[in-house]
């Protein structure tokens, strides 16, 4: 073993040099496994989307992309790991509207700034949010629900998936718009939330179309108020918020990829190209569609657009949070 280490040490500078030369020429990139950091637990919507992209991109890059789930602090732990990793193209990461926009206002101790600390590869998936309520709730439309909420106030019990989660933010936005303060019941993740909606213990929640598709299609919950211009192609029977008389309720959750800041330009270009090609893949589009989302529209695609959208969303959620009197420190 001593011998093994001696040789290892003697070889180290040589190997390092080879690596460096390899990095200098973008043609050689990628020459080993790429790690994709997903800042949430495996199996969730962020994870699944990341894996689908990782699979599609690895075919184009000719290298395996391994997903590393670094969950914690509402996505901040993994995103910090992504920010601090070596900008050599061998670590990329997944971020979304929560971790890379709203968190700036919901987490005062956020250890990174999404506006300056990352090089973006582009948004890869967008999915509108909507409201769902238990099957026997006395309202079938957004108008009726709004009226019920105004009449009952604290009597309305809305569940969400944790402080600062996308479902929480969406609910806060909606109830700000209709000026009602319901009772919030907090759950640890969507699995628990949907359980208590199905059992009727709580009235409803706000979440991504992607999360609730199966339950809406199966008829175990009622849905309305898709927060987008058009109805979701996955749930064509569910009316939009505009149809429900609340056009200001517009939330499209996006999810994108990043590389650490200062990733060399040729490598960044190669990664962005792989993202663009993967998004044009019919199989990827179908997978995202089945999940209730879609690839970005042309005005959302690309790394530069992603940064623009992030900057706009940081401002937007800051206003919502400020108006709500602060969503206390999520961490």
């Amino acid at each position: 073993m001593a011998l093994f280490f001696a040789t290892g040490r003697a070889l180290a500078p040589l190997v390092a040099m080879v690596c460096f030369v390899g990095l200098a020429s973008a043609q050689a990139y990628p020459e080993r496994i790429i790690t994709m950091i997903v800042p949430f637990a495996a199996g969730g919507a962020t994870d699944v989307t990341g894996r689908i992209m990782g699979d599609a991109m690895s075919k184009r890059l000719g290298q395996t992309i391994v997903v590393e789930n670094v969950a914690g602090a509402g996505g901040a732990t993994g995103s910090l790991r992504g920010k601090n990793s070596k900008p050599d193209g061998y670590t990329i990461g997944v971020g979304h509207m929560g971790t890379h926009a709203a968190a700036v206002s919901t987490n005062p101790k956020l250890p990174y700034d999404p506006r300056t600390d990352f090089d973006y590869l582009g948004i890869v998936n967008v999915t509108p949010n909507l409201l769902i309520v238990r099957k026997d709730f006395p309202a079938d439309t957004l108008q009726a629900f709004t009226a019920y909420a105004k009449a009952n106030g604290k009597g309305l019990k809305m569940a969400h998936n944790g402080l600062g989660s996308l479902s929480h933010l969406t609910c806060v936005l909606y109830f700000q718009l209709i000026e009602v303060d319901p009772t919030y019941v907090v759950y640890r993740g969507f699995g628990q939330t949907i359980n208590d909606i199905l059992s009727g213990a709580v009235d409803g929640t706000c979440d991504l179309v992607a999360s609730v598709t199966g339950h809406v299609k199966g008829g175990s919950v009622k849905a309305f108020g898709v927060a987008d211009e058009a109805r979701s192609p996955v749930l064509p029977d569910v009316p939009t918020a505009t149809e429900g008389g609340l056009p200001a309720f517009k939330v499209e959750s996006w999810l994108g990829l990043y590389a650490p800041k200062a990733t060399p330009a040729p490598i960044l270009a190669r990664l962005r190209q792989a993202v663009a090609e993967s998004l044009a893949d019919a199989d990827v589009q179908k997978r995202f569609f089945d999940l209730g989302g879609s690839v970005p529209k042309p005005h959302q695609a690309g790394g530069d657009k992603m940064l623009e959208i992030i900057k706009a969303d940081v401002v937007r959620w800051a206003e919502v949070v400020k108006k709500a009197g602060g969503i206390e420190a999520t961490n």
């Binding site: 199996g43 993740g189 299609k217 199966g218 175990s220």
Partner: peptide, 18 residues
């Protein structure tokens, strides 16, 4: 089981009462 949900969705099976 949450991971199994992820596995299903990756394969285009949407978990739900259906």
């Amino acid at each position: 089981m949450a991971l199994m949900v992820g596995a299903m969705t990756i394969h285009g099976i949407v978990p739900g009462p259906e």
